[in-house]
Design a protein around this nucleic acid. Structure first.
Lengths: 198, 198
DNA sequence: CAAAAAGTAAACTATCAAGTGCACTTTATC
DNA sequence: GATAAAGTGCACTTGATAGTTTACTTTTTG
């Protein structure tokens, strides 16, 4: 790999780390340069301004988020097991350092510039990419009975986020202190209590 | 009222408004002074620094949040009606301009200085102040069957917050576009599906 | 109404950080 | 190995803004 490419990556990594730790506002370009082991001039040769650097980081992050397997409804497995599998996968994402970083940086900026929110809101992450389809098929198969599938999908994901993601994002709790398996179990149980046909 | 007291309030109001609109970081003390119709020196005579001013605003906000009626379990009303009443009251709080302002300012700062989160996490707002007690009594009366009351209370409140509060806070949606009555109905329904004795 | 307390306007200091210019060195490429 | 492309270090400009000083006016209070 060329030195130039290495430097570019170093700069992005350094900025991401620093933005995460101190916020975009409180990170100086000198700090970025130092941490990236590059000169400030090189930073500016790659990224014309701090804003451009920030945008580059956001893009890189969103690309990564598109990865991850999409689960499909399977007739031969119980609905509990399948929902539990989906919840498990989602929790892995929500508690990953990577995702928390992205979230923190993006949320900080969103609160400050509302225009950004619109563009981020349109992206879909994790199980939200396929959950609607999954529930639809579970309904067709008679395993679930849901009137408003969009709403139900949100209920499921929001419950996981509320217990697992937001408390850590805002620093109310640490990832370690959260009982994920219990929360997953309760989320599935509540969902089925509401939507399993009688 | 003395001029001095008026000025103090003007300054707090102005700062609150500006912090809400542009964030603490992007609000200058000159702006605060101008908006408060006070001289900058007066601002500094009341509040020794921007940080002191910010703390004063937070304190004032938290005091206001302690207001609001606490509902108690009543034998003669159905549990649906009572939960719906609680949800309604909570939604009024969550969608109020006042609360959204507090939240936005506080959340912005929390993301930037994690120490702040701890002190805020300890405060309880809205129905969280009395919901545990309420559910406990509903269980004693045989109207509900809950194993983990703390968890159930959070489920109830988190669902409302997820659908009504966070989307507005982050600018994904406006308060107007949200169907609160439908969300309240579904929240109560889901809660009862899970916790009403068979 | 006189003294003290508080407010005012505007210029000033100090600091911090974004971004630039330049002379020079290192790395890539033909 | 010569030439171009990229990186380096450091001093510099520029702009923003927190907080202060000063000389003066207004409000409060005994």
């Amino acid at each position: 790999m060329k030195l130039s490419d290495k430097k570019r990556i170093n700069i992005l990594d350094a900025a991401e780390q620093l933005f995460f730790e101190h916020g975009v506002q409180h990170t100086t370009m000198d700090q970025v340069a130092t941490q990236a082991k590059a000169s400030k001039r090189t930073v500016y040769n790659h990224f014309a301004s701090k804003d451009v650097l920030f945008d580059a980081i956001l893009s890189r992050m969103f690309e990564e988020l598109e990865e991850g397997e999409e689960l499909v409804f399977a007739q031969h497995m119980t609905i509990e097991r399948q929902l539990t599998a989906i919840a498990n996968q989602e929790v892995v994402l929500l508690t990953s350092d990577r995702f928390l970083r992205i979230a923190k940086i993006a949320f900080m900026q969103m609160l400050q510039q509302p225009t950004l929110a619109k563009s981020i809101a349109s992206n879909q992450f994790g199980c939200m990419r396929y959950l609607h389809e999954f529930l639809q098929q579970a309904c067709v198969a008679g395993e679930l009975h849901i009137e408003d599938i969009d709403f139900a999908a949100k209920q499921f994901v929001y419950q996981l986020k509320s217990f697992i993601f937001y408390p850590v994002l805002y620093g109310f709790e640490t990832s370690i202190s959260i009982q994920t398996s219990q929360i997953i179990e309760q989320t599935v149980r509540t969902f089925l209590a509401r939507y399993r046909p009688i």
